[in-house]
Structure formats: C-alpha cells, structure tokens
Amino acid sequence: MDVLDRIREQVESNPVLIYMKGTPQMPMCGFSSRAAEALKQCGVEFGYVNLLADPEIFQNLPRYADWPTFPQVYIKGELIGGCDITLEMFESGDLKTMAQEAVDAAKAKS
C-alpha cells in the first residue's frame, strides 16, 4: 500500500490518533510527551503511531496534511495541530469535548 494511503487508513480508523516520537508510555521527545499526556488526561481512548519505529511514515507524514513538524494529532481524520495547539485546546476544554465526541461517534457507527 502507498504510504499516504497507509496514513489515510490510520487517521480514518482511529477517531483520535497521535503521531509521536516514542510511545505514550515511553515518549522520546518532550513535545510528543506533552501532547500524549494531554490526550491521556482527557480520559478517552486514543491510538498512536511511533514515528521512530516507522521511518517511512516519519519521512512522509509532513506532506500528508502539509504540516512540517511532530507530533501531529488527528481527530475524526482531521489534523487538529501539533503540541502547542493540542495543549491550548486541552486547557480550554475543547480537546476533551472533541475527542469524546469522536470516540462516541465511532462507537455508534460500529
């Protein structure tokens, strides 16, 4: 499968997904760590892709949504932003609302 198709499949099959360096349990970058922590604090299920374990996605993710840096957080298949935006949305409460809604909508569909 083409790498952009693989990314599309990942963001569409996970209502909330983070592309990060390392894992939520063992993040390898401070920005990834903070964004994953914010998602954890929301108390909703989320998927993750460890970019350090998948060089092809690491290389190509920036051109998928025309976003040059990591981490990247996707909700309902849409890029919501990187670390700074994720944290600001967490602080305003929007992150939790959006993530919860995405997870609920996915459950209702299945």
Binding site: K21, P27, G30, D84
Partner: peptide, 27 residues
C-alpha cells in the same frame, strides 16, 4: 518550532504568561 500565536487582545489577557517548552527526552 514551538509556536505561540496571539492577537493583541489575547496577548493582553495572557499578560505575558507563555508556557515553557518541554524538557528534551533524547529523541
């Protein structure tokens, strides 16, 4: 590139309080 982008009104509300960047985790 850590970005904190604000309008003049938002900047006034924050009164100069911008979050610190995270410590490095080595990756």
């Amino acid at each position: 590139l850590a970005l904190h982008t604000l309008t003049a009104t938002e900047w006034q509300k924050k009164a100069g309080h911008i979050a610190d960047s995270p410590p490095c985790h080595g990756g």
